[in-house]
Write a protein that binds this DNA or RNA. Sequence first.
RNA 1: GGCCCGUUCGUCUAAGGGUUAGGACACCACCCUUUCACGGUGGUGAUACGAGUUCGAAUCUCGUACGGGCUACCA
Length: 507
Amino acid sequence: MNKKVRVRFAPSPTGGLHLGGVRTVLYNYLFAKKHGGDFLVRIEDTDQSRYVAGAEEYIFDTLRWCGLEPDESVQHGGNYGPYRQSERKAGYRQYAEKLVTDGHAYYAFDTPEDLEKMRHDFKTEQNHSPQYDHTVRMKMQNSLTLSANEVKALLDAGTRHVIRIKMPVNETVSFTDMIRDEVSFNTSLTDDKVLLKADGMPTYHLAVVVDDHLMEISHAFRGEEWLPSAPVHILLWKYLFGLDNMPQWAHFPLILGPNGKLSKRDGAKYGFPVFSMNWTDPKTNELTEGFKEKGFLPEAFINLLALLGWNDGTEKEIFSKEDLIESFSMERVHSAGAKFDYEKAKWFNHEWVKRLAIGNLQSAVKPLLDEKGIVVTDDALLANVIALVRDRCVLLPDFVQQSSFFFAAPDTLDVGAVKPKWNDDKKNFFLAYIEKVQPLTDWNAIALETSFKELAGEKNIKAGDLLFLFRMMLVGGKFGPPVFNITELLGKDETAERINRAIILFA
RNA sequence: GGCCCGUUCGUCUAAGGGUUAGGACACCACCCUUUCACGGUGGUGAUACGAGUUCGAAUCUCGUACGGGCUACCA
């Protein structure tokens, strides 16, 4: 009998979601959906001192933008709540106490100063940072070294204390990671991690295990940075709920920047976003630009993230969310870290710009035009324009440059560039062209081009020069789609108007 | 320092004992195109190093080097 697949994403609300974080959500989500399971989001806010206002909402905004809505969370409800660890505080202590009773953990009364002194006293050249482990615990103030009466007296007096796990000496803890296969550790080398803090809050170590059990998590996936503390979690599962009930683990590789671990600084330094959406740290007021605001489509964003450390074994690279759900498998996630490549990220966006339904593009582009004060009254025209220019747009803001002249005549013409090529013959050509195309009943690019070339032949003027001038009249610059396609969309009246206006300016 | 994880073109990766080591991004060239792109064709370019196992190793083993992570009453 198979346990129902339930996976969780457990962010701490301490800042914006960077690439690695979003990829972790993505893989969790894909795995859950692939196996018809539940995807839940649990907020790990047991360290209130690090809690940043707005960060929790930011996380959910990102999930919404990416289309990775959880089945259960603070915002979505569910039967396993509360989904904020700070609201579950009352429950954790009993598990820690049980560990003490069973001899797997102990009370420790050491003050921060005691700990500092310990680190100083035991520091050697061989050991830069001594840990609170089996070699030092019998020299500290705890329920292992103090008599039962002393401990009781301290507890009764309300002395501040923590509960630490008592790591066994020289045992091997191993587990099967879905990505790395068997990973093993010697228990002597991990320290006696704090499980319950002096303020009564659990640390991450206790909280993940207890919550994963209570929320019936079947698969626990997280970043590689958690690998070193995995033995603590395995042991906790063994002591508390049994190894048979433990979820399956997978540790994702890190996403790297140009020099090592990807950081906010890399983004600023190399000019690419590292956060999903704009994030303004309320403490420092520092703004970090997001992929969304930079002009990435969510479809492209999850696509590029999914392929940063995973592939389906074929040469396919463009995956919709549905494709990803179908093809995803944890076994094919890489074990090595992947360096983020912004050029490739833009390529993914371009691919999605080229293939997304016009309607979706339209709703993404319209607000950008609005922002620039470009009023679109004709949605059908916008749709045609988008279809015409999408191939030359990589990021969404490119659409503004490529399409604004369809909706408003260019306010500046590069008169300087035109002057040397301008003369009365050319002027007469364009006036004649207006006349020539006036009677056209089928106003389309091909007919317009044919007429244009016929007339140029009659007047004996090189088409090349004329084309350049025509583009300047309509667009105001040396860019945009083929000039007769522009003319077609602009329409008869607007075309004549722009030609006449330009003739005056060029004179 | 200790522990853990990792190492195929510049980058993302395929190839789970036998391939001219394949694809994509980027780059270069040509074609298409009287703008800029798209597109098409082709090209440069990689198994970190050293041993071992094997008829045969990118692939298995060991060592070395390099990279990364962890080493808090943070997650």
